[in-house]
Design a protein around this nucleic acid. Structure first.
Lengths: 210, 210
DNA sequence: TAAGAATTTGGTCGTGCGGTCAGAAATTCA
DNA sequence: TGAATTTCTGACCGCACGACCAAATTCTTA
């Protein structure tokens, strides 16, 4: 057991260890999505996995590491969906559209992941705030990339002159807001919602016609 | 002690009771803002107020009721700031601008209230979700009002044809996002941020020039 | 001022948490 | 096969929480 040495890389883990870690992560996601972060105790996660509580402590240094791995797993999954479709676009406006659409696609396709990550974000954001949480650390790069995309559009002359910081934050908030609404109403029409957002932010970003 | 009968109204409470409740609510806001919801125990709140733990149980039916009262108090405060300035506007676009500006003004002027309500929202959103939380119940009317404002603008012919639902949700998310950023960086220039948002949503809502 | 009501105290209670551990079981490998 | 290693079990620890309560104290009011 040396998970403290490899907090994130899968390094030289045994087959059993990898399988167990994956299983525990999956069960943890479901437990958090259904019961909330506070109620998803190690005991509950172990119960769902059909294993003893100690196994989790054996494979993970603590609850923090488990949560960190969950975030990493979900982020990896989302990136895999989004990147290809964004790279296929040529214009900045097209990339922004792809960003919004693939994001909402992912929300619709992975409800449990979204529920889980929303609850994790909520719970960790609540704590005494001093240090950056894993959650923020994981998501800040995503916002940076979005800002880079916006700056690119401005340089290309496609976008008007706005604060890329504010625009990026607003777009991210809008998408996170969709995830939030999805928790209350799972019947939300994401295709239509995505269209509305695409138009909204197209109008907000594009250069006025001369 | 009949706080269960008057869960929210101030009814026929004694002078002492009102004073104590207000004091406890204030201390609770500070405690939650500084330590997070989870760490703001009744013991900690009592310590800050310089009273015994039991006093809180005496004046409030439980932690839930205390939290509910906190939300109500903050919401009341925010409404008092926003309503007058919105009513002073005639056009829908002007009202939207006032909505955004007064909202951000309030964020800047009441950091502790904002911290507290963010943490409460995070913590209660995290729980097993079945019933609507006080937090959601309190905020939904606010979004409704915003939607009403947007519909008004469409009827006036000021605004283009968009889903008021999506637009209202996006505006709210954008503002909530500011509160979130404010936690990480209290030096944020809110005046400039408000200007950016006003322009952004003006472009997003207004009817294209013919 | 004296009786009664309102308020406060300080302590206890049960609960559930994350984490630990000795030893059992399973697996690996020589 | 048999020893060494990895993996797992189930009981257990200390801790902090919200809730609760009987007794002490302060305020009201007749």
């Amino acid at each position: 057991m040396r998970s403290e040495i490899h907090p994130s890389g899968q390094g030289d883990r045994s087959f059993v260890e990898n399988a167990r870690r994956a299983q525990i992560i999956d069960c943890a996601i479901d437990a958090i999505a259904e019961l909330g972060y506070a109620n998803a105790s190690l005991a509950e996660i172990a119960r769902r996995a059909g294993i003893s509580k100690g196994v989790i402590s054996y494979h993970f240094a603590g609850k923090r590491e488990l949560i960190g791995e969950i975030i990493g797993a979900i982020l990896k999954k989302a990136t895999a969906v989004m990147l290809p479709r964004m790279k296929a676009e040529r214009s900045a406006a097209g990339m922004l559209r792809a960003y919004i659409e693939t994001n909402l696609d992912f929300l619709g396709a992975n409800p449990n992941c979204i529920h889980a990550i929303m609850k994790i974000g909520a719970a960790t954001r609540d704590e005494a705030d001093q240090p950056k949480t894993d959650y923020e650390l994981a998501f800040q790069p995503a916002v940076r990339d979005l800002e880079k995309l916006l700056r690119f559009g401005q340089q290309q002359g496609e976008f008007r002159d706005f604060s890329t910081r504010v625009m990026a934050a607003t777009i991210r908030s809008a998408i996170d807001g969709v995830a939030f609404q999805l928790e209350a109403n799972s019947k939300l029409d994401l295709k239509a919602y995505a269209n509305e957002l695409v138009i909204l932010f197209d109008l907000a970003t594009r250069k006025a016609a001369k």
